[in-house]
Computed example of a mutant assay.
Amino acid sequence: MPLPALVIMKMLGVPRDMLFKMKEWSDDLINFVGSPRTVEDKYERARRGVIAMADFFSQLVAERRAQPKNDILTYLVEARDEQSALTDDELVAAAMLMLFAGHETTTNLLGNAVMALHANPDQWEHLRQSPGSIESAVEEFLRFDGPVLSTARVVARSHELGGHSLEEGQRMFVMLTAANRDPKVFDEPDRLDIGRKPNRHVTFGKGAHFCLGAPLARLEAKTAFNELLKRFQRIEVAKPIEELDWIDAMVMRGVRALPVRLHR
């Protein structure tokens, strides 16, 4: 968690000592993003997290107006004040979205990739022997067990799809993880293959909704695994996968904690 969180915080201009408070607010927000209705107080917790984070960014926006800095928040303020490109609410919402999406997803990408390598030690060894394959490995981590299960869409017009009637205004969950295991697109889709090419996964979405942070997520994953490969001979998950505490949500895909043993 600290790697992607501290990176996006620095880019936005959020003080480093806010790390765990940001994580606390983000955990409250996760309850609203595709979690079951059985989660206790999910709406109240989400409301609390949204209000706390919005208040924080509203104060930070005021500071940047008074004293601009070389960070994304300052650029957003300038887009609001000089170009009327954003309302005040949109400015704060954009900062909140960048912070939340900028660390939760990459945290899960790193954790899921470690679990995949633990279950496929031959691929870890392949990566150690061929560090130049790190870029294709990251793409395979994104495909094999990506950090986002689904994305929500609203039906623009009523139509038939795959024998089902979709009505205008209905909300749907598009299952990205299912698309990434489509046997019509991928050979042996359930096999981790860090050298897989081509690799037309849809983890970052597509078209106008393509993930804004895709280049950053790829860079962070590449950097993290390059360092792990330099420092350790082997990474071992210290608890059975089935006993891990998975995030209970329709959108996010990852565990709340991942105990590991690192072998030099």
Rank of each mutant, 00 (worst) to 15 (best):
P2M: 12
P2E: 15
P4I: 09
A5K: 02
L6C: 08
V7I: 13
I8K: 07
M9A: 09
M11H: 06
P15C: 03
R16Y: 12
M18V: 00
M22L: 07
K23C: 03
L29W: 04
V33Y: 07
V33P: 00
R37I: 08
V39A: 01
E40W: 01
D41F: 10
R47G: 15
A52K: 10
A52D: 13
F57R: 07
L60F: 01
V61G: 02
R64T: 02
A66Q: 14
A66V: 04
T74C: 00
A79W: 09
R80K: 15
E82M: 10
E82K: 14
L86D: 06
V92A: 09
A93M: 11
A95T: 12
G102Y: 03
E104T: 13
N108T: 04
G111Q: 06
G111C: 09
M115N: 08
A119Q: 15
D122Q: 13
D122T: 11
W124R: 08
H126T: 12
S130W: 03
P131W: 01
G132T: 00
I134Q: 10
E135S: 15
V138G: 06
F141L: 07
F141P: 02
F141K: 03
L142I: 13
D145H: 11
T151H: 04
V154W: 02
R157D: 15
E160R: 10
E160F: 01
H164T: 12
L166T: 10
E167T: 14
E167I: 12
M172W: 06
M172P: 00
F173S: 14
A178M: 05
A179D: 11
A179G: 15
R181A: 12
P183L: 09
E188V: 01
P189C: 03
R191E: 12
I194W: 04
I194C: 11
R196T: 08
K197M: 11
P198T: 11
P198I: 12
H201Y: 01
V202C: 09
V202S: 02
F204Y: 08
G207Y: 10
A208W: 01
H209V: 08
F210H: 14
L212W: 05
G213H: 05
A214E: 06
A214R: 04
L219W: 03
E220H: 07
T223Y: 11
A224D: 00
N226S: 15
E227T: 10
K230H: 12
F232G: 08
E236L: 02
K239Q: 13
K239L: 10
I241G: 00
L244R: 03
I247D: 06
D248S: 09
M252N: 14
V260K: 01
